[in-house]
Write a protein that binds this DNA or RNA. Structure first.
Length: 476
RNA sequence: GGUCCCAUCGUCUAGCGGCCUAGGACACCGCCCUCUCACGGCGGUAACGCGAGUUCGAGUCUCGCUGGGAUCACCA
């Protein structure tokens, strides 16, 4: 049978990293076996619906290269793919489940929080008194217009067992299960119910989701069993953590995919990194495109312990991706950060020296500040022990440097470097005593991306000579 | 609190009884390369939570403890 997985987000805001990773794994599980990946929007809770959230989901999946075979916008044979549009489909199943003895009508109203003498919340498994109401009587009350919900009926004896692909055998006493609401009084199904119905109707073979569902899965199994449907394969995933204690969450404003992109991370790097948060290929390779992942992914290598999201390692990986970019592509991605760059700058040369030196695109801004505007600097900046240079050396050599550069025909790094090296030889000084002062004069900064000659190329001849003149004047 | 789940370097992880004096990657430190910085190359520091047991032999199996997480809604 063809593998079918689904990503079923609720449109309540942006996509956080944990969510994205779940979608990724669902996609990879399907694709690794030539199956289909389905997108379904779970919007049964109108209270939490956030405008625009669906577009964020679409855009995020698209930019990371996750393509869905069926979904709200692309259609498919099992639609509609938005739960609110499937609303009328659930109630008949709920009533059928009542007939089959797997659920019952309940007239209790919303459950109140139970509190003991000391004000502590009493945690107890809910066993609904309404399940004792004879079915005929319940139907009469409903016919009379009394509001009701449909609750799952659970026989509290015995043990539930199921096999999870990552956690293995899970056993839970039926006594632990709550007789939860399946169909709300507004006629909408709860997640618990809609999920089972939709997964079955859409032919989902592998249910992949967070491990917070581990304890409630027996409830779903009960429904599958009562309906006589085949249970899906379960793949429960450990959470992605912010630190040892806390999950990554939207509420805390933890990094979302969009945030990371805005911070200069490449979608490919983000996907590569999060794929490795809880899964590994069993080899020592760690750079993978999503297409490569789709070939080698296997649930067997999924980890069961939580993984902490480490921005530092993501940053390293992003640097790897940036360096691997074709020069033109990098140049293109850098454009937004070149807004304030003066016209005299050779932007392509700038991109060439920047590309191996940054790990996130946003670092471009801080790297190029001295190009945008030469900072004011003190003569002490010329001092460098290792280069054996100081203000006096600068004062002595800068005019000769200026002269050489002014006479330079070919304005590229190799030519400039050769010319200045020749000057050092001619003057009988170390290369550093020429190049270091030149770099300081051109940049006004102790450290810069690239050396004196690279900077000269970026600045162009005129600006280079202008900055040299200014530096010479300042030293006298 | 009941129940369920988890537990190897700071972090991501390899390890499915002997190949482990525990391997890789990030980070960190040192050296090399070098016109500063970065890239790149080389090397180093650093972990099996604790205690019993099983076994000739345990990071690997079992139990207990400890620590952490999850779950117990007309939210998903």
């Amino acid at each position: 049978m063809k593998t079918r997985t689904r990503f079923a987000p609720s449109p309540t805001g942006y996509m956080h990293i944990g969510n994205l990773r779940t979608a990724l794994y669902e996609y990879l599980i399907a694709k690794a076996s030539g199956g289909d990946f389905i997108l379904r929007i779970e919007d049964t809770d109108q209270k939490r619906y956030v405008e625009g959230a669906v577009d964020i989901i679409y855009n995020t999946l698209k930019t990371v290269g996750i393509r869905w075979d069926e979904g709200p916008d692309v259609g498919g044979d099992f639609g509609p793919y938005v739960q609110s549009e499937r609303k009328d489909l659930y109630a008949p199943y709920a009533h059928k489940l009542v007939e089959l003895g797997g659920a019952h009508y309940c007239f209790c109203g919303e459950r109140e929080e139970q509190v003991d003498e000391e004000g502590n919340e009493i945690i107890c498994k809910f066993e609904d008194p309404c399940k004792k109401i004879p079915l005929e009587e319940a139907k009469k009350r409903i016919a009379a217009g009394e509001p009701y919900v449909i609750r799952q009926t659970i026989n509290k004896t015995g043990k539930s067992k199921y096999e999870d692909k990552v956690y293995g055998l899970i056993e839970i006493d039926y006594d632990e299960l709550d007789e939860g609401v399946l169909l709300k009084s507004d006629g909408f199904p709860t997640y618990n119910f809609a999920n089972v119905i939709d997964d079955h109707l859409m032919g989902i073979t592998h249910v992949v989701r967070g491990n917070e569902y581990l304890p409630s899965t027996p409830k779903y199994n009960l429904m599958y069993d009562t309906f006589g449907w085949q249970r899906p394969v379960y793949v429960h995933l450990p959470p992605v953590m912010k630190d040892a204690q806390h999950k990554l969450s939207k509420r805390n404003g933890d990094a979302s995919f969009q945030d990371l992109v805005a911070k200069g991370y490449l979608p490919e790097a983000i996907i590569n990194y999060i794929a490795l948060l809880g899964w590994n290929p069993g080899t020592e390779e760690e750079i993978f495109s999503i297409a490569e992942l789709a070939k080698i992914f296997s649930v067997e290598r999924l980890n069961k312990s939580p993984a902490i999201f480490d921005i530092v390692k993501l940053t390293w990986m992003n640097g790897m991706y940036i360096r691997a970019l074709p020069a033109e592509r990098f140049h293109q991605l850098a454009q937004p950060y070149y807004k304030d760059v003066p016209a005299f700058v050779d932007q392509e040369a700038l991109s060439r020296t920047l590309q191996p030196r940054i790990e996130t695109l946003t670092q471009i801004s801080e790297q190029i500040d001295f190009i945008v505007a030469l900072p004011a600097f003190q003569a002490e900046l010329y001092a460098n022990k290792k280069m054996k240079t100081d203000a006096a050396v600068a004062r002595a050599n800068l005019p000769a440097i200026r002269e050489v550069l002014a006479g330079q025909i070919e304005w590229n790094n190799d030519a400039l470097f050769a010319a200045l090296k020749a000057l050092a030889e001619k003057l009988g000084v170390k290369n550093g005593q020429i190049l270091y002062p030149a770099r300081i004069a051109l940049s006004g900064k102790e450290t810069t991306p690239g050396g004196a000659t690279e900077i000269a190329v970026i600045l162009g001849r005129e600006e280079t000579l202008r900055r040299l003149d200014a530096a010479i004047a300042a030293l006298n």
